[in-house]
Design a protein around this nucleic acid. Structure first.
Lengths: 118, 118
DNA sequence: TCATTGATCAACTGATCTGTTGAATAAGAT
DNA sequence: ATCTTATTCAACAGATCAGTTGATCAATGA
C-alpha cells in the first residue's frame, strides 16, 4: 500500500468517534481487543473491524501474547498527519502575514488583516 | 452542528485526495469553484460537492463576489485537528519516556525501549 | 429583455462502510 | 481430549458516498 493511500485511510480512520476513542485509550498503553471493546455498546466483532481499519491506516500495530492480540499505537503515523496539516496551515499563515505587511506599507489602503476587501 | 461532529467530518474530509488537493491550493489564497475544479478530471458538480463537504467540516468558508463564490481556507479548524492528534501522540511519547527512565533505574531488568516484554 | 457565466439542486447508480449474527480458528487451561 | 478464552472470518442489511446527467438559479452584460 502506497504512502498516499495510507494517508487517505489514516485521516478517514480518525473521522470515527469509536476509533478516536481507541486511539485515546492506546495513548495510555497497549490493550487487547477485549479491553478496547469494553467501553462500547457494539459487538466485539465491530470493534475488531475498527482495529483493522486503524491497522490498515498504519495508526496501530499488533503483537501476539498467547491468544491475545495486543494493539499498540504508532505515533510516527500520527506525526505524518500533523505534518501534512501543518504544512498547509503554516503556508497560509505565512502568506497572510506577508500580505498584511504589504498592506501596512501602503498607507492609502487601510485593512483589517483580511485581504478580500480593501 | 456540535464540535465532535465537526471533528468527525473534518478528519473524513481530509481522507480524500481531491479534497486534500483543494486544501493545498487554498493555502496559497482563495479561489473560485471553477478555479478549484480546473486541475481535476471530474465534473464541476462533483467539485462543488467536495467543497460543501469541506465547508460542513469547518475547513473552508465562502464569500460572495458577483456570481462567483470564492472559497477560503480556515486555519483554525486545521489547528483543531493537529491539537487533537498531538494531545495523544505527546501523551504516548511522554509515557514511553518515563517508562524508559523507570526501567533504566532497575538494573536487574534490561530493556529495549519497549515495555511489553521484560 | 435575453444570453452568458458561475454555481447549485435533484435524481440516480455503483461502491464502500458500519453494524449484525453465526461459524470458525488459535492458544491455553483442566 | 475437551473446554474455555480471545479473536477473526463470512455473509448479510441498511446507510452513506462519489460520481454522473439534466435542470435550475443568481448575477452580470449586451
Amino acid at each position: 500500500m502506497d504512502t498516499e493511500e495510507r494517508l487517505n485511510r489514516a485521516f478517514v480512520a480518525l473521522g470515527d468517534p469509536v476509533r478516536r476513542a481507541i486511539i485515546a485509550r492506546l495513548s495510555r498503553g497497549p490493550a487487547t481487543v477485549n479491553e478496547l471493546a469494553e467501553p462500547f455498546d457494539i459487538t466485539l466483532q465491530a470493534v475488531s473491524k475498527h482495529i483493522q481499519v486503524l491497522e490498515q491506516a498504519g495508526l496501530v500495530t499488533r503483537t501476539r501474547d498467547a491468544q491475545r492480540r495486543p494493539v499498540h499505537l504508532e505515533p510516527a503515523q500520527l506525526e505524518r498527519l500533523t505534518a501534512w496539516i501543518d504544512r498547509y496551515r503554516l503556508e497560509m499563515e505565512r502568506r497572510y502575514r506577508s500580505l498584511d505587511a504589504l498592506l501596512a506599507s501602503a498607507p492609502d489602503a487601510p485593512h483589517d488583516s483580511k485581504e478580500k476587501e480593501s
